[in-house]
Amino acid sequence: MYETITYLINNGAAWITLNRPNTLNAFVSKMNQEITHAIKTASASDEVRAIVITGAGRGFCSGQDLSEVDEHMDHGEVLRKHYGPMIKQIYQCEKPIIAAVNGVAAGAGFSLALACDFRLMSDRASFLNAFVHIGLIPDSGNSYFLTRLVGEARALEISVLGEKIKAEQALSLGLATKVFPADHFEAEVQQFTERIASMPTKAVGLIKRTIKAAGNTSFQDYLEEEAQGQRIAGLTKDHREGVQAFIEKRKPVFVGK
């Protein structure tokens, strides 16, 4: 059903694999649309409790396919029509999204990873904010997320100098959640995903909502957002299960509701 990605549901997780390996999974507008659609589908699906985005082959995503770019292209419109909706869909998603960065993530591919909640990196993977090398600025939400992750000074260095960031360096910068050896990267990603998919999904979504509010609203509004979030979480089955398991001194079994 998709041409540029594959979409698979396994053990409560939706796996979105960018599937243009010959181009290191470069973006074409079709891929923007298909990722947007896949995220929307996964967000609405009751059986999905975690979403993984990864790349087929050697790379994660090499950014915009430059063969699609010509002198008549209106770069602003491309963002409004294709990249913006995709990043917005990811940003609005209340399920945990894991970027499994198996190889290079450059340009908009780096932005895609930044928009996710967790970045698991193979020790052979790297980030590259490549935009400046072709006379452009980081796009697809890049500076919004990067600034929040590493602060303005670091974001500026990464964006203006455009140097390759290796996995270990990404970890120390706070850009990577975890780094795994390339040999057992897939198994580690699988394990991490299963852990996330067995968490109290509604509460995880509300944590995402509240953290976003923390960065975007006044303290007064944040406190109200927090109260509403806790009210909603307090009504979930998983909250009751968590409390019950604690009393019975056993591990909770969450169902995501």
Partner: peptide, 10 residues
């Protein structure tokens, strides 16, 4: 503006 889940309650 309130959380969708709590629209009627609020």
């Amino acid at each position: 503006i309130v959380s969708p889940e709590l629209l009627m309650e609020e």
